[in-house]
Nucleic acid binder design. Structure first.
Lengths: 178, 178
DNA sequence: TACCTCAATGCAATTAATTGCATAGTTAGG
DNA sequence: CCTAACTATGCAATTAATTGCATTGAGGTA
C-alpha cells in the first residue's frame, strides 16, 4: 500500500487537512492517485498513531474545524526510506477494456456510446491538465525549477491522456467504419 | 468489482481453468487486467455458487487435475447485463509517480535508476505486445474480423506503452540534463 | 542428489478499499 | 423559501485484494 506514502508526500511540501488531500486527488493529482475521503481520514489517524504525522486543530468559526497534519521527523524518515526502495510495477484493472474485449456479445451501439462517453471525460481531463501546464509555463525560471518534479508527473498525465484519445479515435473509426 | 466479469468475459469465448485465466492475465491481458491466482480461484468458486459457471473435472494422469469452467445461460445473461451498464472511469494509483512528485527529498540518482528500471520492463511489454500484433496481422481477413475487438484492446496496450516510454525519455533527459 | 520451475489447486489471515450512513453550518441558485 | 452544493469530519459494515503457507508429481539443471 502506498496511500500512506502518497499522503506523506503531499504533506511533506505543505501541511494540510484530510479535506485538502482529497481535493488534491480530485483535482490535479487524480491522474495518478485516487482515494475516497473515508480512506484518507482513516489513514491520517493511523499515520498519527504511528508517529509519522503531527496534528493541530484549526478552529474555524464559519466552517467546520480543520485538523491540520504535518510530517514529524519520523514521518520524513519513513518517506525517504520508502522513496529509496524500488516501486512495484503499476497494477492496471480497466473494466472498459474488458468490455471491449468481450464486446462481440453486446450491442455494438452500446460500445460506441460507452467509448464516446469516456472520451468526453478524458478530453476534459486533458484540457484541465493542459491549463495547469500553462500556469507552470508562466512561472519564473526559479519557480519552475522548484516545481520541476511535479511538472514532470503532470507531463505523464498529458501524454497519457493524449495517447488515450488517439486510441479511442482509432477504435471509434474502426467500430463505425465496419 | 469486475474481476467476476473479466472472468466471465474470458470464459465466454472459451471454457478454461483457473490456471488458464491466470496465464491469460500474466501474458497478453496483463496490460488491462491483473489478478493473483488466489483471487481467481476464489472468484471461480463464487461464480459457480451463483450459478453463473458450470464446472467439469478434467482428470489428468501426469499433471494435476483441472477444473474446466464454462458459462451457464445465467452467466451469459449476467455478462450481457453488465456490458450494457456504464463502466466507471478507471482508477489509477501509480506509486512511481508519487515518488517522482516528491522526489526532491530523495537521492536524484535513485529516481533515475528507478525510472530506467521501469523503462526496461515497459519496453519489454511493448515488444511482447507488438509480437502479438504481428501474429494478428498474419491472420486471414476472416480470422482478423473475428479477433477485431481483442485486437483493439491490444492497440490500447501498444499505444499506452509507447506513450509511457516517450514520457520516460522526456523525464530522463530532464533529470540527467539538469 | 538436491534444488528449481511448471502445472494445478486451495485455505487462512490480514490489509486495503468501498459503500452506506451521519452530522452541521454556509453559501448560492431557482 | 426550499434545495442543493460546499466545507469538514467520522463510524460501521462489507467486499476486494494481498500475503503466507501448503500439496503433488513431472521434468530440467548443477
Amino acid at each position: 500500500m502506498s496511500l500512506r506514502h502518497a499522503i506523506l508526500t503531499l504533506l511533506a511540501t505543505e501541511p494540510g487537512s484530510g479535506y485538502d488531500i482529497v481535493q488534491h486527488f480530485k483535482q490535479s493529482l487524480g491522474y495518478f492517485w485516487n482515494a475516497k475521503h473515508q480512506q484518507v481520514y482513516q489513514e491520517l489517524r493511523r499515520l498519527s498513531e504511528d508517529g509519522w504525522l503531527a496534528c493541530q486543530l484549526d478552529a474555524q468559526s464559519d466552517k467546520p474545524d480543520r485538523k491540520v497534519y504535518s510530517l514529524t521527523r519520523a514521518g520524513l524518515a519513513e518517506l525517504q526510506r520508502w522513496q529509496a526502495e524500488p516501486a512495484a510495477p503499476n497494477k492496471i484493472n480497466d473494466a472498459l477494456l474488458v468490455k471491449l474485449y468481450g464486446g462481440a456479445l453486446a450491442e455494438p451501439d452500446n460500445l460506441v456510446g460507452e467509448l464516446e462517453r469516456h472520451r468526453l471525460t478524458h478530453a476534459d481531463t486533458l484540457t484541465r491538465l493542459q491549463a495547469i501546464e500553462q500556469q507552470y509555463r508562466a512561472l519564473s525560471a526559479a519557480e519552475q525549477a522548484q516545481q520541476r518534479l511535479p511538472y514532470l508527473t503532470l507531463r505523464r498525465g498529458i501524454l497519457g491522456e493524449q495517447a488515450w484519445l488517439a486510441w479511442a479515435d482509432e477504435v471509434l473509426a474502426e467500430l463505425k467504419g465496419a
